[in-house]
Design a protein around this nucleic acid. Structure first.
Lengths: 228, 228
DNA sequence: GTCTATATCCTGATAGAC
DNA sequence: GTCTATCAGGATATAGAC
């Protein structure tokens, strides 16, 4: 009997004097899960930051994992929809005889997520989702299915775009390319520390260009590089 | 008055019937911190896995963070020593007129850590250290200083090896290159899931080659890639 | 829908006997 | 060095009044 996705108060009513508890819980949890981590964040911290009651979490989301799942689904669904739309557009052109340029495929995959990172209300989520790659925990495996469709569709598209690569090589390079994207999402704010302050800040649009250029060059690297 | 690094029982005595509690605690904590996470691991789980008493953690390491720090330092110091040694060798050749090849610089940085990942007793630590890049938490900032020396030495070497790159571009690309390494350390076991089973398993030596080839190509990508 | 109050359990840390 | 026992507090989750 949880009001999962139902019964928002009628729109256009104005400030809604305190009715959007659900929304405020999602916002607060998103920020805290990103800033600390899922395990390090307590429901007490979430409800305090949201100005809500402790019991509200269980009422609206059933459990802490349910809260995490809701935080995650709220933002990943639009992103994945946009990714699939862009991929479909590229594939339509491909069917019409226009071969897909690797850089455009990378942008179709990465730009929707990186766009979020530069919007004020999406920065926390970007940091959070960047850790999906490497952070262990049940909260992640419980939402892993949301990646499947996009992942396999893009893997197929990359395989068509790089037909000369042996499958195992392609697999590892895609792993690297997806990994760089996640690392950027998770840690862009730390890059100054990591590179020893070598680079100044870069405008976010330029960072996307850098990311795409780096990943494309890596994917296109000559195969069979000799060792030491 | 903690026996931080003192008084191991005399070597050559044999099984040491139960005297190496400290070592067993480090091993158990390393595995659990890597498998779950620092926050998700309780000291009770650690001591149970180590066959030790709960109070032993506080006796040997002072606190949970002290335990983490000890787990970390035990392995990172030899790795960083080897990295600096290899870098010094490359720089000696450089001073003698032999320019440093980018791939060799990358191998000097990455091979010591990836070697660990393929040794039975280093696999857990590899997974753990791979998350240093993106995982938040005080336990990480408390050991961050251990990276400084190696980081800045290699950043300078990369800058000399890629003199044509503007500093900001170099900064981002190094961020990406270091990020790919961490992603591989943290998630090599997950790469099958992520790439949709496209790639079979690859022998670890070959993975290093793939990583170096990918990162080198990314670092050398033509600058000023045009946007969409 | 929102609240108070509470149940149940686990957390890191410590005191002090052996 | 290792143990038992325990402290003080925080964790998730729920029951039930309003």
């Amino acid at each position: 009997m949880l009001p999962r996705d139902s019964a928002q108060p009628p729109p256009g009513v104005g400030p809604v004097p305190g009715a959007d508890t659900r929304q405020r819980l999602l916002d607060a949890a998103e920020r805290l899960f990103a800033e600390r981590s899922y395990e390090a964040t307590s429901l007490r911290q979430v409800t305090a930051a949201a100005g809500a009651n402790l019991a509200a979490v269980n009422y609206h989301f059933g459990s802490k994992q349910g809260l995490f799942r809701a935080v995650f689904l709220r933002r990943i669904e639009p992103i994945n929809t946009e990714r699939m739309g862009r991929l479909a557009a590229l594939e339509a052109g491909e069917a019409a005889g226009q071969p897909v340029v690797l850089e455009e495929l990378l942008r179709a995959l990465m730009e929707p997520a990186l766009d979020l990172a530069r919007q004020e209300d999406g920065r926390w989520f970007a940091r959070l989702v960047g850790r999906a790659f490497s952070e262990p925990g049940e909260h992640w495996t419980a939402v892993d299915a949301e990646f499947h469709e996009v992942r396999s569709a893009f893997v197929r598209a990359f395989a068509r775009s790089l037909p000369h690569l042996p499958p195992t090589t392609l697999g590892w390079r895609l792993f690297f390319a997806l990994g760089v994207q996640c690392v950027l999402l998770a840690g862009a704010s730390q890059h100054q520390r990591i590179t020893g302050g070598l680079a100044g800040d870069l405008a976010p649009e330029v960072v996307l260009d850098e990311l795409v250029a780096f990943a494309a060059a890596g994917l296109r690297a000559p195969a069979g590089e000799p060792g030491t």
